[in-house]
Design a protein around this nucleic acid. Structure first.
Length: 477
RNA sequence: GACCCCUUCGUCUAGUGGUUAGGACUCAAGAUUUUCAUUCUUGCAACAGGGGUUCGAUUCCCCUAGGGGUCGCCA
């Protein structure tokens, strides 16, 4: 076996790509790149009841748009396939049989009701709920008889008694757990599918995975996995238990309290690099004050030593700030390309490229995701709806004078240049002897639909001559 | 409840046996701007508590507390 680093992302297709899974993917990917290793995608679809039909598709396509590339995987191929667990059932069966033969695993015929009752009794007696191994006492003949009879059964892993399992976690260091705390885990379900524990261990070994990145919720079942490797005569990989991402109230990040699927953020039009950057920073940081990292930066800078131990709160406010920073860094052309689908979807005619770019320039400072471009551009593409208060302002004599002034001087307005527009507009104020709100409100209201908004010269520039004059004329009595 | 993991501003974090404990987000104030947004400046705000070890602990050790995770034929 080579020493080459091999890591895998092993999502179960029970939903769209989760923020937590994204972070594991990012760390895996960066770790692989940094160490010249391989990154593998493996689909863990052993729970047939919770499958979501288009989840695999979503997970792969989302990972693609994020930009993490796999060296091996379901639609990619590789020497260790298949990369979908439901296609590896015979492999698992083989090792399960081996475990049974060696006495490390046994048949269990207890049904759900029996187990529930057993647990209830144990809890009542203040004991730790654990399978009491009643089926372990069954003789070979009894077991065979019940199988022949067609009784439904599962296979359980027999954990050793009173043995301390310890492992050197890459993030936490030495972790020790006594086997007495660990249940005889079901490794083969009655539907013939293995559970995560068996499937993941077998696959990680067969696929020569060197580092297992996963959330810290797996720490307490790690003894099962170590034991499994031992029973099969295999060497366990290095475990890398990552801290969890939490809701603001410090509960485990959940659908109920946050948008947890990456899809949500993609749909809203958060810049992909911002999503990557923000998520990577929950639980990882360099030793300096830097906080902007591209995927490439991450691949260069990432190290396990700098992954935090403590859970991290997902703070949408900071994500929004960071996303806004990425948008402000974009050129108007880039932003237009990203926003175009949203604008077209809203039914706006964005064929005038000059106008589109000017609208983008204005929106850039005000949004943190592309979908928000609508609320900051609708006043340039739709007819304005004015409040009664604003209508009154426009009806005032000074307002009328201001509007008429610009309509009458349309020919001499320097429409192309914001600087010159500014000067022209200032000069108008002097000439009319109207200044401050009296001067600027009618302009902004008639052109923009609100007394608060972009600079007047920008408004002129965005709308250009024809539309500016038309909008003003509309409110001249 | 048992076991395991964790603990620096509200949040993400940097950091060291001796620092005014640093940065970022948020918030507040100010500047710029006719207004809004952006930008800039300043400010508020943390070493969970108690014992040790030490000349000296935020930093090392122990205990307590708090938070989180696990205890499924889910992953």
């Amino acid at each position: 076996m080579s020493n080459k680093v091999r890591v895998r992302l092993a999502p179960s297709p029970t939903g769209y790509l989760h923020l937590g899974t994204l972070r594991v993917a990012l760390y895996n990917y960066a770790f692989a790149k940094k160490n010249n290793g391989s990154f593998i995608l493996r689909i863990e679809d052993t729970d047939q009841n919770r499958l979501v039909s288009d989840a695999v598709e979503n997970i792969i396509s989302t990972l693609n748009t994020i930009g993490v590339e796999f060296d091996e995987g379901p639609n990619k191929g590789g020497d260790y396939g298949p990369y979908v667990q439901s296609q590896r059932l015979d492999i698992y069966r083989k090792y399960i049989n081996e475990l049974i033969e060696k006495g490390f695993a046994y048949h269990c015929f207890c049904d759900k009701e029996t187990l529930d009752e057993m647990r209830a009794q144990q809890i009542a007696k203040k004991e730790d709920p654990k399978y009491d191994r009643r089926c372990l006492k069954l003789s070979k003949e009894e077991v065979q008889a019940r199988i022949d009879r067609g009784d439904s059964y599962v296979i359980r892993l027999r954990m050793p008694d009173d043995r301390v399992f310890s492992f050197d976690d890459a993030i936490r260091g030495l972790v020790e757990i006594n086997s007495n705390q660990v249940d005889d885990q079901v490794i083969l379900k009655s539907d013939g599918f293995p559970t995560y524990h068996l499937a993941a261990c077998v696959d990680d070994h067969l696929m020569e995975i060197t580092h297992v990145f996963r959330g810290e919720e797996w720490i307490s079942s790690t003894p099962k996995h170590i034991w499994l490797y031992e029973c099969l005569g295999w060497q366990a990989p290095k475990f890398v238990h990552l801290p969890l991402i939490m809701n603001t109230d410090h509960s485990k990040l959940s659908k109920r309290k946050n948008d947890v699927s990456v899809e949500n953020y993609l749909q809203k039009g958060y810049p992909v690099p911002a999503i990557i950057n923000y998520i990577a920073l929950i639980g990882w940081h360099t030793s300096d004050d830097r906080e902007f990292f591209s995927l490439e930066d991450l691949c260069q800078e990432f190290s396990l030593e700098r992954v935090n131990k403590a859970n991290g709160v997902f703070d949408i406010v900071k994500l929004n700030w960071m996303a806004g920073m990425y948008i402000r860094e974009m050129s108007n052309e880039e932003l237009a390309a990203k926003c175009r689908p949203f604008l077209e979807n809203a039914g706006y005619d964005v064929s005038d490229n000059r106008k589109l770019l000017a609208v983008m320039d204005n929106a850039k400072d005000r949004i943190y995701c592309y979908s928000q471009v609508i609320e900051h551009s609708k006043m340039f593409y739709e007819d304005l709806t004015l409040s009664d208060e604003d209508k009154q302002i426009l009806a005032e004599e000074d307002s009328q004078t201001v509007l008429r002034y610009f309509v009458d001087n349309a020919d001499s307005i320097p429409w192309q240049d914001i600087e010159e527009l500014g000067q022209f507009i200032k000069a108008g104020s002097k000439e009319l002897g109207i200044k401050g709100k009296k001067y600027f409100f009618p302009l902004r209201i008639s052109l923009f639909g609100s007394s608060h908004g972009p600079d007047i010269p920008k408004l002129f520039n965005i709308l250009a001559r024809e539309e500016t004059i038309n909008r003003m004329k509309k409110y001249i009595k």
